[in-house]
Write a protein that binds this DNA or RNA. Structure first.
Length: 382
DNA sequence: TTTGAGCGG
């Protein structure tokens, strides 16, 4: 039970109409555990735990595919935030189209929440304003971190929630409720505010012999400092940058204005406002996105999946075996730790080539075993 | 104080 072959080639995925997405799962949750948990709500087709195709490590989410939409709806309404392995899971309708999620429309952010308010309480409080797609109190090992997200299915519902709940006292704490902002937007806000108030200064491009005392000597000229530190690696070697925290914003600003671009021991110092965490994260994210886009445009292709690979097949061999069907942009064998089963991906430059490879190679013996070859997920339009 | 994660071999 639990797993199975749900989607024979060419059949329509009917079960999607009665499919629930289950998020925030403990990594040890199995398909059988999901099955046992949801079977009381009605007959199931199958459950799935999603895993990284390469490492096989669980991705923390899965699916419960009911036979009847009404049972799925009942489960959604009554079982959301139930525990498996002591961890509350989050239920949503399975919605493969990610445009609404990505857009952030209807999503609100809540902070200054009392620790006693959990997922269920939050859901109950906010369901008065509209249909909730997803709702979550952010937690760590000590429980609620005091902030949360509620994603409504419409902007109007989100606006109603903000209008009615922002500034309201909940369990004696006044909550802030506002539109969700993406990191870039938040970072811009924080930057604007911090420019007028910062006391922490970032310094780089000094010599290896710079230490805390020397740095303090240079920077103390502009005001009293709270802390001065050259950042070092585990071996004690300077990383070439440091921080100076002043007691006042005026001193920090003066230091930046005066020391930035100055030569010290033949090196031109960089001195600027130290960024907040959110700003650095946003910057990293932007850089990552750019890399990802570049990667995507560099290795386009129509993927096919090859299961049941013999241990003797490596990337080279895989490419060689499939090269007669067309031009291959990528051929990779994913090694499953502790299992003898090999899984591979080959990307062709066209759909026709990929289909031909599937038709001709599926069931063919390579090495000692018959291959299972299927079309992969199309990630792009062409 | 605190602006996630994220949809199927």
């Amino acid at each position: 039970m639990g797993s199975g072959e749900p989607n024979p080639a060419g059949k329509k995925k009917k079960y999607l109409k009665a499919a629930l997405y289950v998020g925030d799962l403990d990594p040890d949750v199995t398909e059988d555990m999901l099955y046992k948990k949801f079977r009381p709500a009605g007959p199931l087709r199958f459950t799935r735990i999603c895993r990284d195709p390469v490492t096989r490590s669980p991705l923390g989410y899965g699916y419960v595919n009911f036979r009847f939409p009404a049972d799925a709806e009942w489960a959604l309404n009554t079982m959301n935030f139930d525990l498996i392995n002591g961890k509350p899971f989050r239920l949503m309708w399975s919605q493969p189209d990610d445009r609404l999620r990505k857009s952030g429309v209807g999503n609100i952010f809540i902070k200054n929440l009392d620790k006693s308010i959990d997922n269920r309480a939050l859901f109950y409080l906010f369901s008065a304003f509209g249909n909730i797609l997803s709702c979550k109190v952010v937690c760590d090992d000590n429980g609620s971190k005091g902030y949360a997200y509620v994603h409504f299915d419409s902007l109007a519902a989100a606006n109603r929630a903000i209008w009615h709940m922002n500034g309201v006292r909940l369990n004696n704490r006044q909550v802030y409720v506002g539109r969700f902002k993406f990191p870039e937007e938040r970072a811009a806000e924080v930057r604007t505010r911090d420019r007028a108030t910062f006391t922490n200064v970032f310094v780089k491009n000094f010599g290896d012999d710079m230490d805390d005392e020397k740095l303090k000597e240079i920077f103390s000229e502009y005001g009293s400092t709270e802390s001065v530190k050259v950042i070092r690696d585990a071996s004690g070697k300077s990383k070439g940058f440091g921080f100076v925290r002043y007691e006042t914003h005026e001193a920090a600003q003066k230091a930046v204005l005066d020391l930035h671009g100055k030569s010290i021991d033949g090196k031109v110092l960089y001195v600027g406002r130290a960024q907040k965490k959110i700003e650095r994260l946003a910057e990293l994210r932007r850089r990552f996105e750019r890399l990802r886009l570049k990667e995507k445009s560099r290795a386009p292709g129509v993927p096919i999946y090859i299961k049941n690979l013999d241990e003797t097949i490596d990337d080279e061999k895989l490419k060689e075996e499939f090269s007669s069907f067309g031009s291959i942009s990528r051929a990779k064998v994913m090694v499953e730790v502790g299992q003898g089963k090999g899984f591979g991906v080959v990307c062709f430059s066209s759909f026709e080539e990929a289909t031909k490879a599937v038709d001709e190679m599926n069931g063919r013996i390579m090495g000692s075993k018959p291959l299972h070859v299927t079309l992969g997920q199309a990630r792009r339009r062409w």
